[in-house]
Design a binder for these strands. Structure first.
Length: 493
RNA sequence: GGCAUCGUGGCCGAGUGGCUAGGCACAGCUCUGCAAAAGCUUGUACAGCGGUUCGAAUCCGCUCGAUGCCUCCA
């Protein structure tokens, strides 16, 4: 029996603003689309948070036994830089700036994107389609929308007619906006545009003579509008209506609003049942953004080379830090917060390895089954990872108590405890034990055994100068000696 | 200006009508040659002002403040 059958899951649906019981269109199967990055520069940490949140969601679905088709696109064309007429896409601009091919830009930053996500232990999506690989599909959708009368062509560009669409549909339902309000608010400026209304958005843009990224179309050479690719790729791989669409909060309007409009205009059905939005990561209380310069790159955190943090943090620590906040909450990154997370992370990892060595008794002093269900309850409540983690720490406490001989656990409960801990920490949260000085374990282990023996001899001889020297020197190397009743062990940070 | 979200103890961060989330830091205790690690114990916080209620941090209103979107952004 699949887990999902007895673990009812609630998700916060941005479309209704409510937590709803999640029910996939096809039992046991989930189609999920998440807006991926535009690959015109390195991913910053804020991007990573969003993808990490959906990675956790993807992982939990899989853990529950669902078969998930997870589509996350790569935007390698089409995002307009400026308004209307001077429209130029970011990738073309960057390519011109660096005097290289647009596809070189795309390649470089796609590789960076994959490398970074891999460090953060993100699972690859099932399909990672590119915008440039789906130009034909996008053109087809434009044709459909034109046929239905929700778009118009001007000088080789095609625009979506928002006002017309709004007569029969509800533009703004996702972001809680009303078209009348928007019109009332934009009366100033924005004249001399090709668009009938400022709210209209491009489905296809004419490429001027020196525009490098261009494709032929029924309306002349040009390139697709930036909302269209997601409609094309999501419906192609997941169907006209699919279960989940995710993305960053900042994409809610206009991007996702436009996706809904395009899909409804072309095939008259609401494309998505559950819209999920991940909230922003802030730095010094401000949103991280490439354009304002308020950002930090993942590699700067891993290396410690940045002007913001006091030290380096491993990807696992950063991931744990992010998992300690709910995905729908704004999270502020700071050195203090990362330090606190690092300690908590180490304690959790430590408990995970001591759990294996726990000796068992005839009965358990703690209700492992009830605890296990609490972990599921937390995740079933809109993927509440902070609560899950609080329960994991509850288990940490018991593990340590059992180790100290103050509580006991039965063989069976121990097995459940360990497998549940592992499942949630590794499988669902995607947190692995990463330590910097790990790989040379064989030799290092022997050396440490020797040092521990020498130290204990010194202690026996009351030569504390020597024993303390060994202990203190090791701690500066990140190796912690731990004296228990059974002897001395160590852990590497 | 419009729309939206939010304001929780020293810090981070859950929760949401009555039943002290959790992490980190701090303090005391146990352990220790001294420590560290680990364990135990302690913290009555919910922006302000009104209102609803037997009861609100949690619901409603207002005020103040923050953030996001309204132009490309995860």
């Amino acid at each position: 029996m699949q887990l999902y059958k007895n673990q009812p899951l609630k998700v916060h649906n941005s479309l209704t603003g409510k937590k709803e019981l999640f029910q996939p269109i096809n039992e046991g199967h989930i189609g999920m689309y998440v807006c991926g990055p535009t690959v015109y520069s390195n991913v910053h940490l804020g991007n990573c948070r969003t993808f990490m949140s959906f990675d956790m969601i993807f992982r939990y679905f899989k853990h529950l036994g669902y078969k998930v088709r997870y589509v996350r696109n790569i935007t390698d064309a089409g995002h307009l830089e400026n308004d209307a007429d001077e429209g130029e896409d970011k990738i073309a601009k960057k390519a011109k700036l660096e005097q290289i091919e647009p596809m070189e830009v795309v390649q470089r930053y796609t590789v960076d994107f994959h490398n970074t996500l891999q460090k953060f232990n993100l699972l690859p999506p099932s399909i990672e389609p590119t915008a440039t690989g789906h130009i034909i599909e996008q053109i087809e959708i434009i044709k459909e929308i034109l046929e239905k009368g929700y778009a118009y062509e001007v000088n080789g560009s095609v625009y979506f007619d928002v006002e017309k669409f709004n007569e029969t549909h509800e533009y703004g339902k996702l972001s809680g906006r009303k078209l009348e309000d928007m019109i009332a608010n934009t009366r100033e400026l924005t004249a001399q545009s090709e668009k009938k209304n400022p709210q209209d958005f491009a489905l296809w843009k004419k490429a001027d003579t020196h525009h490098i990224m261009r494709w032929p179309s029924p309306w002349g050479d040009g390139f697709p509008g930036w909302h269209l690719e997601c409609t094309a790729m999501s419906t192609k791989y997941l169907g006209d209506t699919f279960d989940i669409h995710g993305g960053g909060m900042d994409l809610k309007f206009p991007h996702h609003e436009c996706e809904i409009a395009q899909a409804e205009a072309s095939n008259d059905q609401s494309p998505v049942n559950y819209w999920l939005h991940a909230n922003m990561l802030t730095l010094n209380g401000k949103k991280m953004s490439k354009s304002t310069g308020n950002n930090i790159y993942p590699n700067e955190i891993f290396s410690g080379e940045n002007g913001i943090l006091s030290k380096a943090y491993t990807p696992a620590v950063v991931r744990f830090f992010m998992m300690q906040a709910h995905y729908t909450s704004i999270l502020d990154l700071s050195d203090e917060a990362l330090q606190a997370s690092e300690k908590g992370y180490l304690r959790l990892m430590e408990a995970l390895s001591t759990a294996d060595q726990l000796s068992t008794g005839p009965k358990s002093d703690f209700d492992v089954e009830a605890w296990r269900q609490k972990c599921y309850d937390a995740m079933n409540d809109d993927f509440n990872t902070p609560i899950l983690i609080s329960h994991l720490f509850d288990a940490v406490k018991h593990i340590n108590l059992i180790k100290e001989g103050m509580e006991s656990i039965s063989e069976n409960d121990k097995t459940v405890l360990i497998s549940t801990m592992r499942a949630f920490v590794h499988e669902v949260l995607g947190i692995e034990h990463q330590s910097e000085a790990k790989d040379d374990s064989q030799a290092l282990n022997g050396v440490l055994e020797l040092l521990i023996e020498l130290r204990n001899q010194a202690r026996a001889n009351k030569d504390f100068a020597t024993s303390d020297k060994i202990r203190d020197q090791l701690i500066t190397l990140g190796i912690q000696l731990k004296d228990n009743k059974e002897g001395t062990s160590y852990s590497i940070k």
